[in-house]
Design a protein around this nucleic acid. Sequence first.
DNA 1: CGCCCATTTGACAGCTTTCAAATCGCGTGG
DNA 2: CCACGCGATTTGAAAGCTGTCAAATGGGCG
Lengths: 253, 253
Amino acid sequence: MFQTSPLSPMIAKLARRHPLGSTEVDALLALPHRVARLERGSFLVREGDRATHCRVLLSGFVYRHKCTGEGARQIVSIHLKGDLVDLPNVMLDVADDSIQALTEVSVAIVPAEEILALALASPNIAKAMWADTMVDASILREWLINVARHDARQRIAHLICELALRQEAAGVCERLEYYWPLTQEQLGETTGLTSVHVNRTLQKLRAEGLLRTSARQLIVSDWEGLKVAGDFTAGYLHLTPATPSLARAFESA
Amino acid sequence: MFQTSPLSPMIAKLARRHPLGSTEVDALLALPHRVARLERGSFLVREGDRATHCRVLLSGFVYRHKCTGEGARQIVSIHLKGDLVDLPNVMLDVADDSIQALTEVSVAIVPAEEILALALASPNIAKAMWADTMVDASILREWLINVARHDARQRIAHLICELALRQEAAGVCERLEYYWPLTQEQLGETTGLTSVHVNRTLQKLRAEGLLRTSARQLIVSDWEGLKVAGDFTAGYLHLTPATPSLARAFESA
DNA sequence: CGCCCATTTGACAGCTTTCAAATCGCGTGG
DNA sequence: CCACGCGATTTGAAAGCTGTCAAATGGGCG
């Protein structure tokens, strides 16, 4: 039953942040929601929208972005399976930035009041969700450093390492061979570079034998080398082994 | 009584995020804490520390920072009066980055369990604190854009506008003339620039008549001009008029 | 087969960094 | 009251990474 709800990826993710009891898992499973499918490029949220709903990402990728006054676009986060995409908006009532589908996605849409009431009523759920938003903040700080202090090669290698581990943790794929959701243009919008420069830098990384790309698939040929190239250390992701706490969730369920 | 506790700045700040009732204000006032004074440069937290305490900033400035593998330092946030400086660390058990005093500061030190228990037990306090951490995340996203998409002049002007409004909101000073806590070196570490380039850029801003500096004091000569120069829009700060919700807090107290 | 979007390439300009070295400001001690 | 010392600010010249602007090439889908 836990396995079959569309919300299970979210519950699994939360349980990894803080152990949840059976009543809490049941309460999460009981959240009213409807599932929707959106095609690549669709807006889930536009900057300034009031947060009336919270979307749980069930499959695919979405990204948050914001534009400067001159129209330059910056991607500020990438979300994958299980993420409570607009929880931050719910906490602030309005959206600071737009959220758009990077690939075809399916989402569960939950009314904001429902998720907010549940989050505030149960200390364990609050802790799990809150911690989850704090991990997102930690990732954001790392992105800031990446953009501010790394050169193009480091920035790109760093992001590739991060997405490898996050996709692995979300149970979407293997670490060394995974679906790469970004065009080179979008990779530039994420790392603060031009698509032209992204292209040249990717060529270098390929020439160095660190990775290969085919279609939207990315293959890491040399994980250790890529980590070094990206000055990457995984601590900021606060990854927790999937099994133990999940087991706990099942135990108590 | 509300006014006289060292924790009042924090309570005022939280009440601006979400209305608090008298029992909640009392619970916050009852938090066990001791006040400490730290001199400029002291470490409040070091990367990797376990979060056993949460510090409430009572006066002065602190900043979070992290270093790359090559030793380049990046400041990822600046905190001022009333901020629950290491709430994010408490939520994740360990600190991702170091926190250091930018000026002489005084802080109230609260045991982590105490503040966590209170935050999770009271829905209104949870909402207020959670929203507050989400505003910090919003600021972080704006900093990312600032560093990734703005040139040196825009980055610096943007930060100056932000600190003006945040200090005004914290009730520390006037918007157009305020204490500037950063050296040019640190301003560079915040905006992803070299101190040399920061210096040259500040000279340009001064020559344009947008601002003046004397000692650690910053005077904005042309607020509108500075906003334009910094491509600055205040929305992301989620500032709320101080009076209404504070009044509410007093009413119910 | 053709269209459209994404990737690739080239040459050149420009913002920022680098590396010193000089100057300034200010608190301290004589 | 003035000299000293140290950190912060300022200045110069040269190198480098990244951006800009087109234009060509490639690949997938109808």
